[in-house]
Design a protein around this nucleic acid. Structure first.
Lengths: 201, 201
DNA sequence: GATATAATTTACCCAATAGTAAAATAGGAG
DNA sequence: CTCCTATTTTACTATTGGGTAAATTATATC
């Protein structure tokens, strides 16, 4: 048999890019197939249908993201773990540049079509964040905060900042030039400090 | 002539709902027409095509939002104006419940397809925010901050929080129940205090 | 009431696209 | 070399959905 795993991986990788750029509805399997130098029915050999491919891509990403966050936030003070939570998420976006568009779009429809697997992974990260915030309160360093809001304050500005580079160029004249050239990694660090200082007692 | 403006307004209103729920690509003109109890070609009498309808809806909303923000942030101390900026945006989402989904989705694709009119309106709000932050620095109460990031810290958590109510229900068991029932207006106030405390000296 | 015009419908066309059936091809095992 | 199975292609179907032309209906004005 031929090396099908490579081709399957290529399909997944290209699918991510196209889904990120065009959204689920705007994506055509022909476009994905084209990037992989295969034809559409070859995709159907590897995946049941378009939705299954999308959900596979989505779940893989959510799993990987949750795994990384949990790994990096399991020890240290509450403040250290909160910082790690934010920075790890930011680093995940850097390492997976197509994820932020897909993630933002799913959030924008309230996760209505998010497969259960993704919701479970999201739950894991939220649970971890809740624990960190709770521990911070016990340590006497954090105020009591709504974890939903803190979660939103972390993931949405970062993924949006990541996707809106072209938009910032278009409104460049409005703002001092020094802010246009900021590295995303610095934005992540800056956000982490702001959030921590916002919830510290 | 019949009262076409009412019907046109109805089309716009229904179009907003459907675009919010399904995204641009996922929206069909037949669905919009159905909600208005008319047929598809009647939409074409009022609008050139699907894109023109979408852009009309989008621009109308962006204009109204920018207008409100500018009106409410033109006097007071930098801190007062920053708080007003955040609260006015939050109130706009409350008053226009379909806007947050549309807005988030546009942000998620980096504003790539955003018509120039919307970019101009967005620029106005960003310019205002930059001015507020600058004034705060002059007043000696704010640190020097990246206005792009502050803008993201305001608009993205609020619009995402607003759209993800169904998602929060799905992960309800993870988090203390008291956080599930928080009113959105309180979330807005809470975010405003956090952002202000984060950038204060 | 007749006429003009505004608004809407019926009946289409056409392109795009998800999905399928069956043939073709490639490569490994015997 | 031959057979078997995995993989992919060719050729197709069916449907959806944006868009249009022309007929139709309603309404205001004279």
């Amino acid at each position: 048999m031929r090396d099908t795993q490579n081709k399957k991986d290529e399909i997944i990788s290209m699918a991510m890019e196209v889904f990120a750029k065009r959204g689920y509805e705007g994506t055509t399997l022909d476009e994905i197939a084209g990037y992989c130098n295969i034809t559409k029915p070859a995709i159907y050999y590897h995946f049941k249908n378009k939705l299954a491919l999308y959900e596979y891509v989505l779940c893989t990403q959510f799993e990987e993201m949750a795994k990384r966050i949990l790994e990096h936030t399991d020890s240290g003070s509450a403040e250290e773990r909160l910082r790690a939570y934010i920075v790890t998420f930011g680093q995940y976006l850097i390492d997976n540049p197509t994820f932020s568009a897909i993630f933002s779009r799913e959030i924008s429809i309230g996760g209505a079509t998010l497969p259960q697997g993704c919701i479970d992974e999201l739950s894991k990260t939220l649970k971890r964040l809740s624990k960190i915030l709770e521990d911070g309160v016990k340590e006497g360093i954090f105020q009591d905060e709504n974890p939903f809001l803190v979660q939103m304050m972390i993931v949405t500005p970062l993924s949006a900042y990541h996707t809106t580079k072209p938009l910032r160029q278009k409104v460049a004249d409005i703002v001092d030039n020094k802010y246009l050239t900021v590295e995303f990694a610095d934005v992540v660090d800056s956000l982490a400090e702001k959030i921590i200082s916002a919830i510290k007692i």
